[in-house]
Design a protein around this nucleic acid. Sequence first.
DNA 1: CAAGAATTAAACATTC
DNA 2: CGAATGTTTAATTCTT
Length: 735
Amino acid sequence: MMMQESATETISNSSMSQNGMSTLSSSQLEAGSRDGRSSAGDTSSEVSTVELLHLQQQQALQAARQLLLQQPGSGLKSPKSQDKQRPLQVPVSVAMMSPQVITPQQMQQILQQQVLSPQQLQALLQQQQAVMLQQQHLQEFYKKQQEQLHLQLLQQQHPGKQAKEQQQQQQQLAAQQLVFQQQLLQMQQLQQQQHLLNMQRQGLLSLPGPAPGQAALPGQTLPPSAGLSPAELQQLWKDVTGGGGHAMEDNGIKHSNNGGGGGGNGGGLDLSTNNSSSTTSSCNPAKASPPISHHSIANGQSPGLNHRRERERERERERESSLHEESGGTHPLYGHGVCKWPGCENICEDFGQFLKHLNSEHALDDRSTAQCRVQMQVVQQLEIQLSKERERLQAMMAHLHMRPSEPKSSPKPLNLVSSITMSKNLPSASPPNLPQTPTTPTAPITPMTGMPQVPSILGGANVPSMGAMRRRHSDKYSMPLSSGGETVFIFPEIAPNYEFYKNADVRPPFTYATLIRQAIMDSADMQLTLNEIYSWFTRTFAYFRRNAATWKNAVRHNLSLHKCFVRVENVKGAVWTVDEMEYQKRRSQKITGSPSLVKNLPCSLGYGSALNASLQAALAETSLPLLGTPGLMNSGSTGPMGGSCHGLLGGDPSMLMGGPPMRDSTGFTTTWTPTDTAAPDTPPPVHMQQIHVKEEPLNMDDEDCPMSLVTTANHSPELDDDRELEEGNLSEDLE
DNA sequence: CAAGAATTAAACATTC
DNA sequence: CGAATGTTTAATTCTT
C-alpha cells in the first residue's frame, strides 16, 4: 500500500507541477517545477496490479485533462495569445496522444466529446482498423525484408560466388525498401489525416465553421456534445468492453506487449508508444495545458485522488441508476437485482449473490481495471459536459441580463450604451463579457470531481494561466448601487456572475481599483478598513482566496496609488473611502484621452440617472444617433455592458442589472450583510470632511469632469439616503 | 511601436 | 519585536 501511494503520489505530483507551471508566474514556476521529477523511475520497478490501476487512472486522467484542455476556449488568454497558443498547444498534445494509432479510449474520448453519429463512428473505426491492418502488414513486410537482408548479408560474407546476383538482389531489396518506406509514409499521412480529422471533430482546429469567430464559444461547440444519453454511454461502454476488449487490455494492462489491436506481430516498435502515449501526454501538458492552475494541483492530492475518483464514479453510477429508480441494494453497483457494473447487467437474486458475483466477475483484474478506466473517462466526459452546460447557462444568464454576448457578431455601430460603458476597452470589450470569454471556459471545466475550488483547468484559464491578467474591465461601467446592507453589484458583468466568481477560481476581469471601490461602495457607510477590504475580496471572489500576499499587496498599492481612495482617520484606526469625484475624473480622463471615446464620457460616469440636457445634446451631436431613439439605446446589443448606462435609459436601475426577474434569482443582489465590516461605531460619512485628501487639493478645474453630472447622477432613484449625504458633501466640495 | 495603465514585487516607513 | 498598514519605486505585461 505504501508503495502504491508513493507511486501515485509521484505521479500526481508531477502532473501537478506540470499543470501548475503554465499558470504560475515565472518565479512560482521555479518552485513548482521542482517536484516535477519524473515518475517513471519510481514506478518502473515492480508494479503491482493495484499500482497499475492507479497509475493508469492517473494517466487516463491526464489524457482526459488533455482533452479537456483542448476544449475550445479553455484558455484565459486574450484572443491574440490564444491564436498563438492554440495551434501549438492542441495539435501537439493530440499528436502526443496518438503517435500511432488512436487507442480505443482516446477514440472514445473524442467520440464522446463530439458525439459523432453512429455512421461517423463506424467509419472512423473502420478506418482505424484498416490503418492498423495496414500497419501490421507493413511491419510484417518490413520484418521479412530485414530477414532477407540479413540473410543476404550473411551470404555475402561467404566468398561470393555470384557477386552480381547479390548486387541485383540488393538493389531489388533496396527498391523494395523504398517502396516500403513510401508505404510507411503513406501510413503516416493517413494517420495524420486521422488526427486532423479528430482534431477537427474536437473543434481544435478552428476550421471555418458556421461561426468561425465563435469557435471559442462553448455554446457553439456544445450542442453536439450536449447529448450523451445514458444509453449512449452504455453503448460506448459495450463498444469498449466488448469489441475493443483486447484493445483495452492493451492499455489496461501495463506494458504488456500490445497484444490487442496490434495483432501480435511483435514489432512493438511503434505500437509500444501506444501505451506510453498516456504517459507522454502526461508529460507535455506543461505546455499544452495551461488551464490547470496550481489549485487543481492542490487537488491532485495524490493519495486521496483515487479514492475520490472512485467515489465520484460510484456516485455517477448511482445517479444513472437513480434515473431508472432508486438503487435497491446498499451497494452502488447493485440495484434492482442487477449488477450495475458497466456492461454487465448480470442478474443477481439477492445482495449476497451480487457480492459473490462482484467478487468473482469483477475482481481486480486487467479487465476490471480497464473498465474502471473507461468509466473514469465517462465520468470525466460527463464532468466536462456539465461544465459546458454550466457555461452555457452562464452565457444565457448573462445574455438575458445585459446581452453581454454576441459581441462581434453585431458589427452594428455601438450604441450609446455600449460605447459608453466600455469606455476604454471598447474594442476588446465585446468579448470581455467574462464568461463567454476565455475566462469562463476555464472555470466551468474546473468542476472536476467536486473539488471545492477547482482551479481552472483551463484556466484558466483560467485564468489563471496568465501571470498578470489584465483583461480588466476596469472601471468603465460600474455604478454605485449599494443600498443598506445589501450588496448590489455595480458591475453589470459581475452581477450575473456573482455566484460564479464567488465559487470559481477565476480571476475577475476588473482592476483592483474597481474592485476596491466596489468593496467600499458595498459597505453600509461607504468606508472600510483595509482588513475589511481584504475580507470583501476573499468573500466575493474565490480567486482571491489564494496568493493573499500578492493581491493584498496590490490592494494596498492601489489604495495608496490612486487618489480616488482616501484614507480617513478614524477613532479606531483608519478606514478607506472612495472619492467618487476623483474616481470619475480618472475615468473620464482615460476616456477623454482617446478622442474617439469622448462621447462615452457622459455615460462613463455611470451614475447618471439624469444627464443634463446640454450634455445629452452634446452626446447626440457626437454622432450618437441612437441617443434619440431610446429603444435602441437600451438594447445594448453591442457590448457586454449594454444597458449599464441606465441613466440614459430612463433611469431604471434594474435594467442596469439586466432586469428584475433575474436579479433576485441570480444572486447578484447579494444578501450578505457587511456586518463584519463597518463597525457600528464608525462615524458616518460626514467624516469625509476631515479626510486629508492625498496631495492634490481637489482643484476645481474640472470643467471636463462635469461634477454636475456626478451629483445629478447620484440622484438615481435607487440611491439611498446615505448617498444623498455624500452627494451633499461632494457638491460642497465642488462648489 | 510607443504611451499609458495595471499588475506584481519589493523595499522601507509607520502604526498597532 | 513582529505583524499590519501605507508609501514608493521599479519591472513587466497589456491595452490602446
